[in-house]
């Protein structure tokens, strides 16, 4: 345990990294299936079934990354888990009810027809919308240091709208991969329209976080970090440009390049996430609690780490297997 120096230092850091990866994977994976939920009302009846089929085999496993992220927060940083979740009590409840609604609507709509199916479609949309909005709102409040003032709530509303646009966007790029024909054309149009929301959202968060915190301002706008960090915004700008160009020219012949928007979006999410992670380190509750202060005892963290190191490659292995088995264009979803 002393291999990497003091375990009270490197273990919390390792867990912060694991938690960060889980959140990022969650935002990309559940982001696309929440996004498809947000786009659902825009498709016609047959397209709705196709859209649902594009996420059908994946959503259960995608949501599990949220359980892992919150689970890691809970087990590795119990004090932070309590502080963050009691401060975000109401949006958490809204998100949970949203996730419940869309999860069950997914199953129920497959087993009914007619008017009931229409209702479950709406429940699926409403659940996806409230889950996305509340996640965005929580992100905003978290950036604002979990304070509840008129300004922080207004910022939370802004991030709520922007994250929802971001989910809708990545959902559309997922549909570009999984669909063909008229639906694919629609998905490209949906993505084009939402790219603006993504740009505004990224800009708003990038501007607001250094403005509300002097510490974050110093971390970004001081020498030499300003130069070392320059690739982050430059890469993001490049990715936005790639997305812009790709969406303008798609669909290409033989469905070439259809994977580009989704991949570029995932990379863009990675950039945004890295920026946030850099800003907040070493705090896990902004400006209040560092990850070292809130971590569990090293011996308990070590036990979990052993399990995680053994299990994570396996999880990645069968996640890849599941995505390989269900690769290609979405077809009718059948329970056989």
């Amino acid at each position: 345990m002393t291999l990497f120096g003091d375990p009270a230092v490197w273990l919390p850091l390792a867990f912060a990294a694991l938690m960060g990866v889980s959140i990022l994977v969650y935002v990309v994976l559940d982001g696309f299936d929440l996004g498809v939920g947000l786009l659902l009302p825009l498709g016609d009846e047959a397209e709705k079934d196709r859209m649902i089929a594009a996420i059908g085999p994946f959503w259960d496993a995608n949501e599990t990354w949220l359980v892992l992220a919150v689970g890691l927060l809970l087990v590795a940083f119990p004090a932070a888990h309590g502080a963050i979740l009691t401060a975000l009590y109401l949006p958490v409840a809204v998100m949970l009810i949203g996730l419940i609604l869309r999860g069950v609507a997914f199953e129920f709509r497959a087993k009914t027809t007619g008017r009931m199916k229409t209702r479950w479609n709406w429940a699926f949309f409403a659940g996806s919308l409230s889950a996305s909005l509340s996640q965005g709102y929580m992100l905003g409040l978290y950036i604002m240091g979990l304070e509840h003032t008129a300004a922080t709530i207004a910022f939370g509303v802004l991030t709520a709208v922007c994250l929802t646009a971001g989910y809708g966007f990545i959902g559309a790029t997922w549909l570009i991969i999984k669909s063909e024909g008229a639906l694919q054309l629609k998905a490209i149009a949906w993505a084009r329209r939402r790219l603006w929301g993504v740009i505004i959202g990224l800009g708003a968060v990038s501007l607001a976080s250094p403005l509300v915190s002097e510490r974050i301002f110093d971390k970004w706008f001081s020498f030499p970090s300003m130069i070392l960090l320059a690739p982050l915004p430059l890469m993001s700008a490049l990715l936005v440009f790639i997305l812009w160009t790709a969406l303008k020219h798609l669909p290409a012949e033989d469905d070439k390049w259809s994977w580009v928007p989704f991949s570029a979006t995932s990379a863009l999410f990675l950039m945004a996430f890295s920026g946030l992670a850099y800003s907040f380190y070493p705090y896990v509750v902004p400006e209040k609690l560092t990850l070292y202060e809130s971590a569990s005892a090293p011996e308990s963290l070590f036990i979990i780490l052993l399990g995680a190191l053994f299990v994570l490659p396996v999880i990645i292995g069968y996640t890849v297997l599941a995505y390989t088995v269900f690769r290609g264009k979405a077809t009718e979803l059948r329970y056989d």
Partner: peptide, 21 residues
């Protein structure tokens, strides 16, 4: 913490990933 973590790591993912198949 470790008990809950093991639950999520060993079981939850296994079920969720193979459920699709």
């Amino acid at each position: 913490g470790p008990l809950l973590a093991y639950e999520v790591l060993t079981a939850f993912f296994l079920e969720a990933a193979f459920l699709g198949i």
